[in-house]
Amino acid sequence: MGKRKQVKDGDVDMDGANPPVEGDDSDEEMEIVDVDFEWFDPQPVDFHGLKTLLRQLFDVDADLFGISELADLILAQPLLGSTVKVDGNESDPYAFLTVLNLQEHMDKPVIKDLISYFQKKASSTPSLAPLSQLLSQSPIPPIGLLLTERLINMPAEVVPPMYTMLQEEIAWALEDKEPYNFSHYLILSKIYEEVESKLDMEAPPQKKKKKSGGTQERFYFHPEDEVLERHALCSGSFEHTHQHDEGHSDSKRAFQEMGIKTGGNLMLLEAKNFESAVKAVTDYVKPSV
Rank of each mutant, 00 (worst) to 15 (best):
F65S: 02
K85C: 03
L73W: 07
V60F: 03
N89E: 09
L64G: 05
D87R: 13
V84Q: 06
L57N: 01
L79P: 01
A76I: 05
P78N: 12
D59R: 13
L75H: 08
A62P: 00
G49Q: 07
D59Q: 13
D92L: 10
P78T: 14
D72Y: 09
V60D: 00
F58R: 12
F58K: 07
L80T: 14
A95T: 01
A95S: 15
V45K: 13
R55K: 15
K51H: 01
Q77D: 09
S91K: 09
V60E: 04
A71S: 15
L50I: 09
P93T: 10
F96K: 08
L70N: 01
Q43T: 10
V60M: 02
A95P: 04
D63A: 10
Q77L: 06
G88D: 06
D61N: 04
P78V: 14
Q56V: 02
F58Q: 08
L80K: 08
T52P: 00
N89T: 05
L50H: 10
D63K: 15
Q43D: 10
A62Q: 14
A62S: 15
A71V: 01
K51E: 13
E69M: 07
L75K: 13
N89K: 14
S68L: 03
V84G: 06
L79A: 12
G66D: 15
Y94E: 12
A71Y: 11
A62H: 15
Q43G: 05
V45T: 13
H48N: 11
D87Y: 10
Q56D: 12
A71I: 01
Y94M: 11
Y94D: 07
D87P: 00
L75M: 13
H48V: 06
D87T: 06
Q43P: 00
N89D: 04
L73H: 14
L54D: 05
S82H: 13
T52W: 02
D61P: 05
S68M: 07
Q56M: 08
G49F: 02
D61L: 07
S82G: 04
K85S: 05
P93N: 10
D72W: 04
P93Q: 09
Q77K: 15
G88V: 03
L53D: 08
F47K: 15
D72M: 10
L50K: 09
Q56P: 00
L73A: 14
A76W: 04
D46V: 02
G81P: 09
D61H: 03
D87G: 01
P78R: 02
D87A: 11
Q56G: 05
F65V: 11
T83M: 05
D61T: 00
D59G: 08
A71C: 04
K51Y: 00
L73I: 13
R55C: 08
L64I: 10
P44F: 04
D46Y: 04
K85M: 01
T52Y: 04
F47L: 12
D61I: 02
L73V: 09
G49I: 05
R55L: 01
Q43K: 10
A95V: 01
D61W: 12
L50T: 11
S91G: 11
L70S: 07
L70E: 03
G88F: 08
L75Y: 09
P78F: 11
F65R: 03
L73D: 01
P93I: 09
A71K: 12
S91Q: 08
A95G: 09
P78G: 13
